[in-house]
């Protein structure tokens, strides 16, 4: 299970840059950053090495930030590995709120998913042989 940082961002110039600066100043290293955007606001989702510190730094800087538990699945770097995972998720009717993929190594990629009933979902994924982190 991953402790993802979620930040509510207004759609305004410079907000993302200053968010990253706050994390950098706190010595936080990001592994992934994705933004869900609408016309008026965005939600930044961050995977990083020190989520607790990151949360503290962002709150101090006045951001509306939260820790959200998400499931990460490590996938081999080959065609079809993500499809297999998502087919399993679909088959088991695991409800995905959102997901994104990142890769910091050459031989694997990580698929992050926000699932309903996350504890149970993680157990099912593990039992099916997926590499849950």
């Amino acid at each position: 299970m991953i402790n993802q940082i979620t930040v509510f961002l207004e759609n305004k110039g410079g907000r993302l840059a200053s968010l990253c600066r706050s994390l950098a100043d706190a010595g936080v290293n990001m592994e992934a950053l994705t933004i869900a955007d609408t016309a008026d606001y965005g939600i930044a989702r961050i995977v990083c090495d020190k989520p607790e510190e990151a949360l503290k730094a962002l709150e101090e800087a006045g951001y509306r930030a939260k820790i959200t538990k998400v499931v990460g699945v490590e996938l081999p770097n080959r065609p079809g590995s993500l499809a297999e995972l998502l087919e399993f998720v679909d088959e088991k009717n695991l409800n995905v709120e959102y997901g994104y993929c990142f890769s910091n190594a050459t031989d694997t990629a990580t698929q992050v998913m926000k699932l309903r009933d996350i504890e149970n979902a993680a157990v099912m994924l593990k039992a099916a042989g997926f590499d849950v982190i």
Binding site: T6, F8, A36, Y41, I43, R64, K66, T68, E97, Y98
Partner: peptide
């Protein structure tokens, strides 16, 4: 302005 305890992680919840 949203309150701190509001779960804003999902866009559908905000909307």
């Amino acid at each position: 302005e949203v309150n701190p305890d509001f779960t804003f992680d999902e866009i559908s919840a905000i909307e």
